[in-house]
């Protein structure tokens, strides 16, 4: 990727949570929600982070959105190190859209207030802020009159539009979308996804699209990163991931989605249902993997380049 066009870059980003497993036990145990994640996202690109619950995809979003402090590693935004603090002129340039539109808006505050809230930290007059709020509300396809409504008067899809408008109002360059449609109905989901795509094109934004739904990722993303146990096990262009999935986990995930046509066979790979373990000296997917080889027991797999921009953490693809 061209170095100039990179908006956001992480270097060995880590976020560990300490868990006290046994009573009075002195050994520290960690949930490695984000472990050694190095990714970059270019301007105007949508990078989808795909994974199941517990993969750490939401934590990654929270760390990049400055809601959580990373344990280790660095975050670069337009070549500026923002790991510890965001300089003033970059305020509002990275925003998050949350999953649950039903609780992301304070039920006691009018839509107008929720919309202008992110502008309060910036030097913008109240009148300009309200004008902006109404502009973005209309951009999201909602009438201006909704400014005076309370959240409970809106449907789930309308609320999510408000949540997105609230993120767009600070004119972000990097937008983190954390499962923005997973709580919405199919028809509403299509509305929101299309809207997000057209806004991205118009504003030349970069999306980090976090989802558990591969179909949604396929529609939205340019590149896809598959996360498992805090690590990115496979990353590549959309076509390359869908046409040539390599990591056993990616393949399992893909096979779990039924083909839309009822006449096509649905033969999902069924993995063992085991708790995620954060192994240090072997592959973390080893417990569930149907293709494991001896090497997987001994070492941690590292990124293996299989194609232009397509990397996989799996010993099956080591060229000897």
């Amino acid at each position: 990727m061209n170095e100039d066009s990179i908006i956001l870059k992480t270097i060995s980003l880590k976020k560990y949570y300490e868990v006290r497993s046994k009573f009075l036990k002195r050994i520290k145990q960690f949930v490695k929600a984000v472990d050694d994640v190095t990714i970059e996202a270019g301007r105007g690109e949508t990078l989808a982070i795909v994974g199941e619950s517990g993969s750490g995809k939401t934590t990654l979003g929270m760390v990049l959105g400055k809601l959580l402090k990373p344990t280790d590693g660095r975050i670069l935004f337009k070549e500026l190190d923002i790991t510890h603090s965001l300089p003033n002129h970059l305020r509002g340039k990275i925003r998050i859209v949350f999953q649950d539109p039903y609780s992301a808006l304070n039920p006691r505050l009018k839509i107008a207030y929720s919309l202008i809230e992110p502008l309060q930290t910036m030097s913008i007059s109240k009148r300009d802020a309200v004008e902006k709020a109404s502009h973005y509300l209309q951009l999201m396809g909602l009438p201006e009159s909704y400014m005076n409504y309370y959240p409970h008067m809106l449907s789930g899809g309308q609320r999510q539009r408000v949540v997105i408008a609230r993120a767009l109002i600070t004119e972000p360059e990097f937008l983190i979308l954390d499962e923005p449609t997973s709580m919405l109905d199919a028809s509403t989901q299509a509305q929101i996804l299309r809207l997000l795509r057209s806004i991205k094109k118009e504003k030349q934004m970069t999306y980090l699209f976090i989802t558990h739904n591969l179909a949604v990722a396929r529609y939205m993303a340019d590149r896809i990163a598959v996360m498992y146990a805090g690590q990115i096990v496979e990353i590549g262009g959309k076509n390359s991931i869908f046409q040539n999935p390599l990591h056993p986990y990616t393949r399992t995930l893909l096979s779990a989605y039924p083909p839309p046509n009822p006449r096509s066979q649905w033969n999902p790979i069924i993995p063992e249902e085991l708790a995620v373990k954060y192994y240090e000296n072997k592959c973390r997917y080893i417990d569930r993997c149907p293709f494991k080889i001896q090497e997987c027991e001994k070492n941690t797999p590292t990124d293996i380049k299989v194609d232009e921009n397509h990397y996989v953490k799996c010993f099956l693809y080591v060229k000897t």
Binding site: G65, K66, L67, R91, G92, R95, I96, F98, D100, S103, A104, L105, N106, P107, E117, P118, Q120, T121, V163, R166
Partner: peptide, 17 residues
């Protein structure tokens, strides 16, 4: 625990606010 508190933090509001 409500998401709107996290959302307010994300919007850059001070703890006092």
């Amino acid at each position: 625990e409500n998401l709107f508190v996290t959302a307010a933090r994300e919007a850059g509001l001070s703890s006092f606010k």
